[in-house]
């Protein structure tokens, strides 16, 4: 009985219901996070830490900081704060590579022993770029 009543909904009523559902979906989009607006982080370069405090946080498809300076052989900790998997992988000869870091997980890699500048990307989302400077 109730089913037949629903079937008889007027087109205007359905239109209103449709509009409400669209508004609900769109409002759901607006309150679920800060929302990234660029493909790279804008944080300023960091200076080398004394003892194993080198970290990279990945959030909203960006490395924070995008440029990190560490000592040769330093252990760098990477935290993935996004909802998707990321990697921190040196371009070229792959001087370092965390492999896949699942959402919410942490990984580490060892900085190369030679001083220099090492660009890195996320191999899953190659538009994510950063630079590791080894001193």
């Amino acid at each position: 009985m109730a089913g037949s009543a629903m079937r008889g909904l007027a087109p205007r009523t359905l239109g209103v219901l449709g509009a409400v559902s669209l508004l609900l979906a769109l409002s759901g989009c607006s309150d679920s996070g800060s929302g990234g607006s660029g493909s790279t982080a804008t944080a300023s370069p960091s200076s080398p830490a004394a003892g194993g405090g080198d970290t990279i946080d990945i959030k909203n498809f960006a490395f924070n900081p995008a440029s990190l300076t560490v000592k040769a052989g330093a252990v760098v900790t990477v935290t993935n704060s996004d909802s998707t998997t990321h990697t921190v992988t040196a371009t070229g000869a792959k001087a370092f590579d965390t492999g896949d870091i699942a959402p919410g997980k942490t990984a580490t890699f060892t900085a190369p022993p030679e001083a220099g500048s090492y660009p890195f990307i996320c191999t899953i989302h190659p538009f994510m770029k950063g630079t590791l400077t080894v001193v």
Binding site: L26, C29, G35, G36, F61
Partner: peptide, 14 residues
Amino acid sequence: AYVHADLAPQYDAV
């Protein structure tokens, strides 16, 4: 609908 709405802000970067 929910999961796409939830993930949307992060994927503004793409």
